[in-house]
Amino acid sequence: MSTRARILEVAADLVARSPDGDISTRAVCEAAQVGAPALYRHFGDKEGLLSAVVDHGFDQYLATKRRRGPGADPVQDLRDGWDSHVDFALRNPNLYRLMNSPAMRTPPASALESHRILTADLERAAAQGKLRLAPELAAQIVMSANVGVALMLVSRPSTFTDMSTSTRVRDAVHAAIFTPDVATAGPATDEARVPPTAARLNALLRQSPHSPLSAAETGLMREWLDRLSNAPTSFSA
């Protein structure tokens, strides 16, 4: 293994095990058993090292996208791309936070490539008449929302506990960029009316100063209505 590869491997391991994702060049040099001049010769500075770590880790995620050919349905490719992006973030939280850190003044090459892949899928959707915005603008909207959801899930797991949040945001964003025939599954069904009805009843119960239910019954009713309001159903899958 070359000196550069050893330094990179050690740095990636330290980032993954760090409580906050931060590492020092001294710790990297000690673990890789190299002097500081060797690290700076290969990576320039700490930012260059961290950028290389991000590219090294995210390259594994992008490899699957490079290998797959475009599917017949670009919209499904975009749905799958969103989900795989979030899955990568959840499996590599420190690396993902590092990739999107303001401290990274120069965007890693992997981030730029990911954006190009997204834009290409949107261009295919536009060519099929399924996009209501220019692909470049749609790509900015999708990437902003995708990264935002992923960062919240990995940075605030105690607050963002419902994993269906990602799917719901994805579908809302897609409804904004795709033509109505693509974004909607058809007319509302009785099943589709359950969540908004439950949410409305729950809100009315919270606003009502008087209730024939006991405190325990009210708590249980609200729990049931929350479940009905939030539970994914076939119409929103």
Rank of each mutant, 00 (worst) to 15 (best):
K130H: 11
E113G: 02
M104P: 10
R105V: 14
R132K: 09
L112I: 07
A109Y: 00
L118M: 13
R124A: 12
A120W: 09
A125T: 05
L118K: 00
M104G: 09
L122P: 00
P108S: 04
Q128F: 11
G129W: 12
L122K: 03
R132E: 01
M104W: 02
A111K: 09
A120L: 13
L112C: 08
S110N: 03
D121T: 08
L133Y: 13
G129C: 10
P108W: 02
L112M: 09
R132C: 03
R116N: 15
E123I: 10
R132P: 00
D121S: 12
E113D: 09
D121Y: 14
A109T: 07
A126M: 04
A111E: 10
R132S: 09
R132I: 00
A109N: 07
S110L: 07
P108K: 03
P107D: 04
I117H: 10
P107Q: 06
D121Q: 12
L131K: 01
S110M: 07
E113F: 04
D121N: 10
A125H: 05
R116Q: 15
D121K: 06
H115M: 09
M104F: 09
T119D: 09
K130R: 13
Q128I: 00
R116E: 15
P108G: 00
A127T: 03
A125E: 04
L131M: 02
E113Y: 12
T106Q: 14
P108D: 00
A120G: 14
S110R: 04
P107W: 06
T106C: 13
A127D: 12
T106S: 15
R105I: 14
T119S: 11
S110T: 08
L133E: 02
R116V: 14
R132M: 02
A120N: 14
R105S: 15
D121E: 11
L131I: 01
L133I: 07
P107C: 02
L131D: 02
R105L: 15
H115N: 07
P107R: 05
P107V: 03
L118T: 10
L133K: 06
A126G: 11
L122Y: 01
P108L: 03
A126T: 04
R105T: 15
S110H: 01
H115W: 06
L118I: 02
P107N: 04
L122A: 07
E113N: 05
A111W: 07
T106I: 15
A120K: 13
G129T: 12
A120D: 15
R132F: 00
A109D: 09
L133C: 04
A126W: 01
R132W: 00
L133D: 08
E123K: 13
D121G: 13
P107F: 07
Q128H: 08
R124Q: 10
A125L: 06
S110A: 14
A109K: 11
E113W: 06
G129F: 11
L133T: 01
